[in-house]
C-alpha cells in the first residue's frame, strides 16, 4: 500500500468540512484560563473575625490528648496488656495472629504475574498454561486456556504511561460466561512482521488479531500475543485483564 492519501479527495474535503463544523469553540475558554493564570493572585481580605476552631482541633486539646494516649500506652506496656498480638506461650515461634489470618485468605494465582515485564516471557506457570507478557512496559496478561470469562472488562488497569497499543478497547457482554478455548493461526499473513491470528472462543470465531512477530519468542513452545485495539479484555476474579492468549508455535 502506498502512503498516498490523495485518492479520496471528495471524502477528504467532506471530512475536513465536517471536522471544522463539528469543532467546538474552545479558544475563549483557553485564553480566559491563560489570562487568569497570568494575573497576580488576588489578596482576599476578610473583615469577618477568624472562625474559632472547635475544641478538638485546638492545639492545647491535641497536646493533652496525645499526652493522655501516651500515658495509657505506657501503662499498657508496663502491665503487659495484649493489643491483639499475642504469642502462643507453648510455641514461642508461632506467628502473630494477624499473619495467621492472612495465610488463610485465598491467593489468586494469576496475580502473582502482575509484576511481570517483557523480560519475563519465560515466567510461565508451572504447567505452561499461561504466561504474562508486557511488551513495551504495558501490562498484558495471558488468559489461561479454559478460563471462564466472568464479566466484561470495564477498564484496562494499565499502569504505565507508555502507550503502545492504543486505548480503544471495548467490553462485550456477549462474551460473559464464555471460555477461552483456542487460538489458531489464520492462513493470511498480513506483513512479514505481522501475522494474523484468529481467536476462537467456545468454538466460535470471535475476531482476528494482528500480532507482531517480535512478540513471538523464538525457541519457546509458546508464543505471546498481544491484541489490536479492536480486541476485548475481561475482568476475571475482580481483576482486570486484557484478553490475550498464547498459541503453540507451529
Amino acid at each position: 500500500m502506498t502512503d498516498d492519501n490523495r485518492n479520496l479527495p471528495e471524502w477528504e474535503a467532506a471530512f475536513t468540512e465536517y471536522a471544522r463544523k463539528d469543532a467546538p469553540d474552545l479558544l475563549p475558554g483557553i485564553l480566559a484560563k491563560i489570562n487568569a493564570g497570568e494575573e497576580p493572585p488576588l489578596t482576599v481580605v476578610s473583615e469577618a473575625p477568624a472562625k474559632k476552631k472547635p475544641f478538638w482541633m485546638r492545639r492545647q486539646f491535641l497536646l493533652s490528648a496525645s499526652a493522655f494516649a501516651a500515658t495509657l500506652l505506657l501503662i499498657a506496656i508496663l502491665l503487659r496488656i495484649p493489643f491483639g498480638i499475642s504469642k502462643d506461650k507453648d510455641n514461642p515461634s508461632a506467628a502473630p495472629a494477624t499473619d495467621e489470618c492472612k495465610d488463610d485468605q485465598p491467593v489468586l494465582t494469576i496475580s502473582a504475574y502482575s509484576k511481570s515485564s517483557a523480560r519475563d516471557m519465560e515466567n510461565a506457570s508451572p504447567d505452561n498454561s499461561y504466561v504474562s507478557f508486557a511488551p513495551d512496559r504495558w501490562k498484558h496478561y495471558l488468559v489461561p486456556k479454559g478460563t471462564v470469562i466472568t464479566e466484561p472488562m470495564n477498564e484496562l488497569g494499565i499502569e504505565d504511561k507508555t502507550d503502545k497499543l492504543g486505548t480503544q478497547y471495548s467490553s462485550s457482554p456477549s462474551h460473559t460466561g464464555a471460555t477461552v478455548e483456542n487460538v489458531v493461526i489464520a492462513d493470511e499473513v498480513v506483513t512479514q512482521k505481522e501475522t494474523l491470528y484468529r481467536v476462537v472462543i467456545d468454538g466460535e470465531l470471535q475476531t482476528d488479531i494482528l500480532i507482531r512477530s517480535d512478540a513471538v519468542k523464538t525457541g519457546n513452545t509458546y508464543a505471546c500475543v498481544y491484541i489490536l485495539p479492536t480486541q476485548e479484555g475481561f475482568k476475571l476474579d475482580n481483576k482486570t485483564y486484557l484478553i490475550c492468549t498464547m498459541v503453540e508455535k507451529k
Binding site: 479520496l8 507508555t162 502507550d163 503502545k164 497499543l165 492504543g166 506483513t191 512482521k193 494482528l210 507482531r212
Partner: peptide, 17 residues
Amino acid sequence: ATGKPQGTVAWIYRECI
C-alpha cells in the same frame, strides 16, 4: 503517534478506505 506498528496502521487505514 499511536505506538502501533506501521504495517498495522496501513492495514487499519486500508480497512477504512
